[in-house]
């Protein structure tokens, strides 16, 4: 009989600017399964990691928002392709972390994959839906189109075994912000961050440019205020911040006129919608003279 093999436990790290650094603070915290057994050590982000993540996200804005909608759609679709190839890993992680059945975990992964495909499709279509030609009393074409707002800080849905699940909740929170060309700094589910951090590995090996998605595992209550107050963040999605002092976050965000999307709860939190895409956009209006021939 062969000797028993030692397990190789994995330490999950942050995802900032396309790299997987440890927290600048050196801190980690233990993540346990729903039943309370040890699953992994996970890096616990500090405010300086949040600052670095915003820098990385800011640097990625021009490239990502400058890509054509068609190209962004292809890149987001690629995430779905790669996620599909690793469904077994995600399924197992979800089942342990959330204490759900294998079938329920499979269903969650499937829905997450389909959601990437759904949002990918919108990348080159939402402008036609949200933009329009305005009637004006003069010899001008007047067009309004949505443009990405820039860096979006996202608090993904929290809690193990609640809401739509740790992977699906994360994708619901992040995908719509990316569609229009925003970049995101995301605080994943604090109790069940593993599927989000595994998704980072998918993002890193797909065609998503470095810095477009940055993931800060750790205490949402600790990091969110720094992101809400950060002057270089353009919008805050408080989707999963219902248990935090989110009114304070709104007040901090108002200081620099950020767009703030309020918390939602229940299994329908962050349900797919075009409104979640257009919320993180600014309207650009152009006037163009008409020919007078």
């Amino acid at each position: 009989m062969s000797p028993a093999r030692l397990t190789v436990p994995k330490t999950y790290k942050l995802y900032i600017g396309g790299k997987f650094p440890r927290s600048e603070s050196g801190r980690v915290y233990e993540v346990t399964s729903r039943k309370g057994t040890f699953m992994a050590n996970v890096a616990k982000a500090s405010r300086k990691d949040a600052r670095d993540a915003v820098l990385a996200a800011r640097a990625a804005v021009s490239g990502w928002s400058g890509a054509t909608g068609y190209n962004r759609g292809q890149v987001l679709y690629r995430i779905a392709e790669l996620l599909d190839g690793r469904r077994a890993q995600f399924s197992a992680e979800i089942a342990r972390a959330e204490g759900v059945s294998a079938a329920a975990a499979d269903a969650q992964v499937d829905e997450a994959i389909d959601l990437w495909v759904w949002y990918a499709g919108w990348a080159d279509k939402y402008v036609q839906v949200a933009g329009n030609a305005n009637p004006v009393s003069g010899p001008f074409f007047n067009l309004s189109t949505p443009e990405p707002t820039g860096v979006v800080a996202v608090v993904a849905p929290q809690g193990a075994g609640q809401g739509s699940g740790s992977l699906l909740g994360f994708v619901r929170a992040v995908a719509p912000a990316l569609v229009s060309g925003n970049t995101a700094v995301v605080i994943p589910n604090e109790q069940a961050p593993l599927s989000a951090l595994s998704l980072a590995e998918v993002l890193a090996t797909s065609d998503v440019p470095a810095g477009v998605v940055n993931i800060l595992s750790g205490s949402a209550a600790e990091i969110a205020p720094w992101l809400a107050g950060h002057a270089d963040v353009n919008a805050v999605d408080l989707l999963g911040a219902g248990e935090l002092e989110w009114v304070d976050l709104q007040i901090a965000a108002a200081e620099t006129l950020k767009r703030v999307s309020p918390p939602e709860s229940g299994p329908d939190a962050g349900a797919p919608s075009v409104e979640r895409i257009t919320f993180f956009t600014e309207t650009k209006t152009v006037w163009h003279t008409k020919g007078l021939l």
Binding site: R51, V54, R58, G229, H230, D232
Partner: peptide, 14 residues
């Protein structure tokens, strides 16, 4: 310097 003065991180637009 702005970070020390205001208590929150500043950005290149400032």
């Amino acid at each position: 310097r702005q970070k020390l003065a205001t208590g929150h991180y500043s950005g290149s637009s400032y």
